Simulated assay, not measured.
Amino acid sequence: MKIVNILGTNYNIKFVDEFPDYLSEVGENAGGLCNRHDRDIWIKRCNDKDMTATGRERCDKDVLRHEIIHAYLSESGLSANASHYYGSWAENEEMVDWFAIQSPKIFQTFKEVDCL
């Protein structure tokens, strides 16, 4: 288990082969879950036998970035206050995926031009 600080709040990062029973229904098809109330990030290890070890590691990191973005949106208040119903832009999976997928490229650009 790792602990990461998200905007002043510690989250536990847990890599597991299966989600615990109390999360199994929510995460039936998910690769990861961010539980903002318990402040846990759960990552189901990629066990796809059609991937190399490097591919599985990359998959785990992709899912972890995705769930960390969820945690940032939650801790910033955006996910709770963006709208009054589930599905606001701050909880939208496509939006979170965009940030999670593009962030390494954006950070590399920032490093290249020395603006971090």
Score class of each variant (00 low, 15 high):
residue 24 S to H: 01
residue 59 C to T: 04
residue 65 R to E: 01
residue 89 W to A: 15
residue 110 F to H: 00
residue 78 L to S: 00
residue 58 R to W: 07
residue 49 K to A: 14
residue 59 C to G: 01
residue 10 N to M: 00
residue 75 E to R: 14
residue 23 L to H: 09
residue 48 D to M: 11
residue 42 W to V: 12
residue 81 N to M: 03
residue 1 M to T: 05
residue 22 Y to K: 10
residue 25 E to V: 08
residue 92 N to Q: 09
residue 54 T to I: 12
residue 90 A to C: 07
residue 51 M to L: 15
residue 17 D to I: 05
residue 77 G to A: 12
residue 23 L to D: 00
residue 110 F to I: 10
residue 62 D to F: 06
residue 2 K to R: 10
residue 85 Y to W: 06
residue 57 E to P: 04
residue 7 L to V: 06
residue 70 H to W: 10
residue 15 F to M: 11
residue 66 H to A: 03
residue 99 F to Y: 14
residue 108 Q to W: 02
residue 46 C to L: 08
residue 2 K to H: 10
residue 2 K to Y: 09
residue 99 F to G: 02
residue 26 V to N: 00
residue 29 N to V: 13
residue 74 S to M: 07
residue 41 I to F: 07
residue 93 E to T: 12
residue 65 R to N: 05
residue 94 E to A: 12
residue 36 R to Y: 05
residue 64 L to G: 01
residue 50 D to E: 14
residue 5 N to E: 03
residue 13 I to T: 01
residue 55 G to A: 06
residue 84 H to F: 10
residue 78 L to C: 00
residue 98 W to K: 09
residue 94 E to G: 10
residue 34 C to Y: 05
residue 77 G to S: 02
residue 87 G to N: 15
residue 57 E to N: 09
residue 95 M to L: 07
residue 94 E to M: 14
residue 98 W to G: 05
residue 21 D to G: 05
residue 62 D to W: 02
residue 116 L to E: 03
residue 41 I to A: 07
residue 34 C to S: 07
residue 17 D to T: 11
residue 114 D to K: 13
residue 110 F to D: 04
residue 10 N to E: 11
residue 29 N to R: 14
residue 49 K to H: 09
residue 115 C to Y: 02
residue 73 L to N: 11
residue 80 A to V: 14
residue 17 D to H: 04
residue 105 K to H: 12
residue 76 S to G: 09
residue 63 V to R: 03
residue 19 F to I: 05
residue 38 D to G: 01
residue 103 S to F: 07
residue 111 K to S: 06
residue 62 D to T: 12
residue 18 E to M: 11
residue 65 R to D: 05
residue 21 D to C: 09
residue 115 C to Q: 12
residue 115 C to A: 11
residue 46 C to M: 11
residue 35 N to G: 13
residue 107 F to K: 03
residue 2 K to I: 08
residue 115 C to K: 13
residue 4 V to P: 12
residue 29 N to F: 14
residue 64 L to K: 05
residue 73 L to F: 03
residue 52 T to L: 05
residue 42 W to L: 15
residue 103 S to Q: 11
residue 17 D to R: 07
residue 98 W to E: 06
residue 91 E to I: 02
residue 85 Y to R: 10
residue 55 G to R: 15
residue 16 V to T: 10
residue 75 E to V: 06
residue 81 N to P: 07
